[in-house]
């Protein structure tokens, strides 16, 4: 079983060659808002990356130098941050991201069966996206809802006590 999501190789040398990238006004506006919370704007690094991801689904390489400039840090540093955190996606993901809790309480309450059912239903394994770009499947650590194991999130929605037999209904709500 592969538990890791492949991260693209960091190609700092290529960053300058990336096609021109511009943040939308909305993105800029939200990032500036975020920067106001801190005496040092660098603290908005993760927040800014999350804003880009919210609008684009993921954080393309070309976004890194642009965001870095905005928050006054350098691209290499921000790249290091962007690759460290598991919920910053560095490659395109599907329209919906399914994260399945694989930690201990869910392991004890049916995680294995849920993973097998999800992989069969979607025809993909962890780290992959369905060919129709509808779902990306990822493992995640304890979602803090262990009393409702097994659990998973689809985008921002938490699903607890997930019965593999009821997956069609749950997945059907995400087109």
């Amino acid at each position: 079983m592969s538990n890791t999501t492949a991260q693209p190789v960091i190609k700092l040398a290529d960053l300058g060659k990336a096609p021109p990238f511009a943040l939308s006004d909305q993105e800029r506006h939200e990032i500036i808002d975020e920067m106001h919370h801190y005496p040092d704007p660098r603290a908005a690094s993760i927040g800014a990356l999350k804003i880009v991801q919210k609008h684009r689904g993921w954080v393309p390489d070309a976004a890194i130098p642009v965001v870095a400039k905005m928050i006054g840090t350098d691209a290499a540093d921000l790249e290091g941050v962007a690759t460290f955190y598991s919920l910053i996606f560095r490659q395109p993901v599907g329209r919906h991201v399914v994260t399945v809790c694989d930690s201990i309480s869910c392991h004890l309450t049916g995680y294995d069966e849920l993973r097998v059912a999800l992989e069969a239903k979607l025809g993909i394994r962890f780290g992959q996206t369905t060919p129709d770009q509808r779902f990306t499947l990822l493992p995640i650590c304890c979602l803090g809802a262990c009393d409702r194991g097994p659990t998973m999130m689809i985008d921002e929605d938490l699903h607890g006590d997930v019965d593999p037999a009821g997956l069609d209904k749950i997945l059907g709500a995400y087109s």
């Binding site: 919370h37 040092d40 660098r42 603290a43 908005a44 690094s45 993760i46 927040g47 990356l49 999350k50 928050i71 840090t73 540093d77 290091g80 941050v81 460290f84 955190y85 598991s86 919920l87 910053i88 995640i140 650590c141």
Partner: peptide, 27 residues
């Protein structure tokens, strides 16, 4: 007072790693 949301990684809960993360660094 502000809410600062993270982007994954359990180690962020260790208090000094948390401080690095809050400053916008690797945790």
């Amino acid at each position: 007072c502000f809410v600062h949301t993270g982007a994954g990684r359990y180690i962020c809960g260790e208090e000094t790693a948390l401080i690095n993360s809050l400053e916008g660094r690797r945790a």
